[in-house]
Design a protein around this nucleic acid. Structure first.
Lengths: 122, 122, 122, 122
DNA sequence: GTGGTCTAGACCACC
DNA sequence: GTGGTCTAGACCACA
């Protein structure tokens, strides 16, 4: 894993873990790597991974069993998608509309570009 | 003006000024407010406005006449649109495609949502 | 049994066992389950149950007969109540008073709430 | 300030700051000490204070102005009281009822004890 | 100056 | 072994 983005590493790790859960690498309710193990894999300080886990704990995406470890929540992938969906429709979509208006891009124009880009990344 | 976003204030100011230029409040080649005046209006530290202007200077959107003040570049609005367009197609659109795939949102679904949102903000 | 609370599991187990003794499920002087059996029932690590028993041993609530097992003390339920009473009047009550003052809750207000809650849990 | 309790220091600091806000030492909307300053006063690592502030930020009790500092939220004391009240009625009160039943303490008995304790701490 | 993040290393309670 | 907390010290972007 690479940390190119400007976003804080702990968030990138959290996002990455969400991807892994949605991709069923760690299924709902399954144990996820220990803080220390994951830190070793990612070549990152354990505190940073701990911060990611604490963040996901707040969101209800992971859970915690004392002295045992962290687990994906029972409905983790559902929660993740719900959160992403909400953020998409409430934040990204309005921003998209604003940009399109500023640039005089019509819905049709965007649709065309999207269809092209959609196929490329198949 | 409000600074609700997480983006740095100097960028929010720069964006805002670009909007004003595109909206012809300050036409291409016209003088824009002095750093101090603008800072007073925005209730912001003058250093912050100075940083915004420096940023726009790099992009060629504003120009500087020693001892006189800052001016919108001759083709400012054209440059602004070009920059936004590039960033849109190279950065935002791929990100959009990625998000849509992660959330199983089809182009049709997005188009529908967009048309609704487009009309609301008329 | 569920371990929802933030308290350490070994304490929750100890509390639970005290409840069982007071409720006469295990009478004063009677044998209580072996560490292994209880651990199996609670789906918990045997070390954790052992720690609970050690804790209750210190308090004089359970006793240990070498090679045979653990027993509730002869006056176990009396001891339990005495301990709870002491902790109630010395720790919980002062904390309650402090909270009530901070929240401007009068004795009358609390009494009313209590009577409602008391009946619900009959 | 002393840190005798078993609770994490960052929470004790957060609680303490809430007390100060409710007591109007830092009024609603006013600036609170910088992370470094407060850490120096409390003789604690700045990271620990930062953690307290981050915690209060989540709860909406304090706010944040980039590069300037932390401020008590506009309705900070109101929010604090609401949170305490909710936790009191949803968590402490049921626990109190449970303890009272276990110890055969009647509402009348508690009321009497409370009134005594109330006056002492005037 | 401010806060935000990260690293390193330590100690603790718990299972 | 696990996570939780704290310290120390560093670097960064921002105002």
């Amino acid at each position: 894993m690479q940390f190119n983005s400007n976003a804080p590493i702990y968030q990138q790790i959290a996002d990455h873990l969400c991807d892994l859960i949605v991709a069923n690498v760690y299924g709902d309710g399954e144990r996820i790597p220990s803080v220390r193990d994951f830190a070793a894999v990612l070549e990152v300080n354990p505190n940073t991974v701990a911060r990611s886990y604490a963040y996901l704990l707040e969101l209800g995406i992971v859970e915690n069993q004392r002295g045992i470890g962290y687990f994906a929540a029972r409905e983790a992938s559902k929660i993740i998608k719900a959160i992403k969906r909400a953020s998409f429709y409430e934040r990204e979509l309005p921003a998209l509309v604003k940009t399109m208006k500023a640039l005089d891009i019509s819905v049709e124009e965007l649709t065309a570009s999207l269809e092209g880009a959609f196929d490329e990344t198949l």
